[in-house]
Amino acid sequence: MNITQTEIPDVLLIEPRVFGDDRGFFFESFNEQVFQDKTGLSLRFVQDNHSRSAKNVLRGLHYQIQQAQGKLVRVVAGAIFDVAVDIRKGSPTFGQWVGYELSAANKQQLWIPPGFAHGFVALENGTEVLYKTTDYYAPAHERSILWNDPDLGIHWNLLGEPIVSAKDQAGIPLKQADLFD
């Protein structure tokens, strides 16, 4: 497993060691001990989520203001442009974002710690995303920042008009959002 710090050092890009031959491939998508040894993070994942999206479906930017979730995100079919936004008020990278293409082909994963808003856009039809979370889904604490907030200036790598849920269309700008201390 290769771990790379992103421009926001707490967000990590993870490349698993893949063993492949003419039959296909094998890799460990998560190994607690290796993850802890390589990152220094001791995490407890409590929930796995799986979504399927058509091309140009944009989900996000989501977070929970209480029961904040760290997320380990990967793609098992298709591809996404995955985005993490630092919404920790005291952070030197507050209001900054990073984005990476995760795909079934590249098998990369993104670790997004608690204190970040998260979103992605599907780059292909039939894209399936799996992610582990460090806390349970808590609808009462869920928040959504406007995906196209001009103050964030996220370049979504859109391949057309995004398909956005009513909930995400109603997201609020970062300036008005509940934030982490």
Rank of each mutant, 00 (worst) to 15 (best):
122 A>L: 09
161 E>D: 15
54 A>K: 14
107 K>R: 15
15 E>C: 01
6 T>V: 09
129 V>L: 12
14 I>K: 00
13 L>S: 07
132 K>L: 13
98 V>H: 01
96 Q>W: 02
17 R>E: 13
145 I>P: 06
104 A>Y: 13
166 A>D: 15
164 V>W: 08
20 G>P: 01
122 A>Y: 13
143 R>Y: 03
158 L>F: 11
107 K>T: 06
134 T>Y: 07
163 I>Q: 11
26 F>N: 10
174 L>S: 05
78 G>D: 07
54 A>N: 13
8 I>P: 08
95 G>E: 02
21 D>P: 05
18 V>W: 03
27 F>M: 08
47 Q>M: 03
73 V>C: 11
65 I>W: 15
61 L>G: 04
26 F>R: 11
143 R>M: 12
170 A>W: 01
82 D>A: 05
9 P>W: 02
107 K>G: 03
23 R>L: 05
142 E>L: 03
70 G>P: 12
13 L>K: 09
121 V>M: 09
98 V>G: 01
34 V>Q: 15
36 Q>R: 15
161 E>C: 00
33 Q>H: 12
76 V>Q: 12
111 W>E: 01
160 G>C: 07
146 L>K: 13
49 N>Q: 04
110 L>R: 04
64 Q>N: 10
157 N>A: 11
43 L>G: 02
148 N>L: 03
16 P>L: 04
15 E>M: 04
120 F>Q: 05
132 K>T: 00
40 G>F: 11
177 A>T: 10
19 F>M: 06
43 L>A: 07
152 L>V: 01
122 A>K: 03
75 V>P: 12
163 I>F: 01
26 F>H: 10
